[in-house]
Design a protein around this nucleic acid. Structure first.
Length: 240
DNA sequence: TATTTAATAT
DNA sequence: AATATTAAAT
């Protein structure tokens, strides 16, 4: 499933083993025959020595007519856009892929920034520390720009710092927080170490693991920061 | 030239 | 508003 239907995009998917190509948004009709691919593959694999898994062909909610059945390989049909029947009719209005900075991904970003120090934190170094495959320097740069903007705004509009440490002193000037007091839950987020597809193939969120919806924007963000007094790491709140 | 940063576009 | 892309600066 992809959000872009141009030839280049489709070819990439096919080259990577895709058997079919569906342009989002997907209608139920398009989904109703997909089981056949799996079924056929099962048959093929079984011929070797794999016992077939129990798999009863589902009753299609909607059955395609013979004429339009599963169309030929899409490579040959791809033009500019695909309609709900898999037919391409226009190239405009195809959504672009965008990286979603999940709270967990942001944590890794912040961790890297803190590790480097606010002044030394530049995109390439951040990227190197984050070790997230297929994350690009440009994406980090973009996020860094936003991060700095938010930090600046935060410092300008707030003055009090609230620490969760029992008796910590102010750690540094960037640790203030605004009136917003929420913070992200630290759990439930899987470590993101791989996007599983090259950046160019990230058509849109639901295809990769970046689609977490727990955004961080306008919320607080809890992090851990070196406390020079206590000589240890302790939690603190950010408001990025 | 490569990277960073600011500005602008989507 | 968030992310991407471009363009200027280092």
């Amino acid at each position: 499933m992809a959000s872009r239907g141009d030839t280049s995009t489709v070819m990439k998917y096919i080259a990577n083993g895709a058997s079919d190509f569906l342009l989002k948004p997907v209608r139920i009709e398009e989904l109703s025959n997909i089981w056949q691919h799996v079924f056929r593959k099962q048959m093929r694999d079984h011929s070797v020595n794999n016992p077939p898994i129990a798999m009863a062909p589902p009753t299609p909610a909607i059955t395609r007519t013979a004429g339009e059945a599963n169309s030929a390989p899409l490579e040959n049909e791809v033009r500019d856009m695909i309609n709900n029947n898999g037919e391409i009719t226009d190239i405009r209005d195809l959504r672009k892929s965008r990286l979603t900075w999940t709270s967990q991904l942001h944590r890794q970003f912040i961790s890297a920034v803190n590790h480097l120090g606010e002044d030394k934190a530049v995109p390439k170094k951040i990227l190197g520390i984050m070790k997230v495959k297929h994350l690009t320097r440009e994406q980090v740069a973009s996020h860094l720009q936003k991060y700095r903007t938010h930090m600046k705004r935060s410092i300008a509009t707030t003055s009090k710092y609230v620490s969760t440490l029992p008796s910590s002193t102010a750690l540094n000037k960037t640790q203030n927080h605004s009136s917003k007091s929420k913070c992200f839950d630290q759990d439930g987020c899987m470590e993101i170490t791989d996007y599983s597809l090259p950046r160019d193939d990230l058509s849109s969120g639901s295809e990769c693991m970046l689609e977490e919806q727990n955004g961080y924007s306008s919320e607080g963000f809890q992090d851990f920061q070196w406390d020079s007094d206590k000589q240890e790491y302790g939690p603190c709140f950010w408001n990025f």
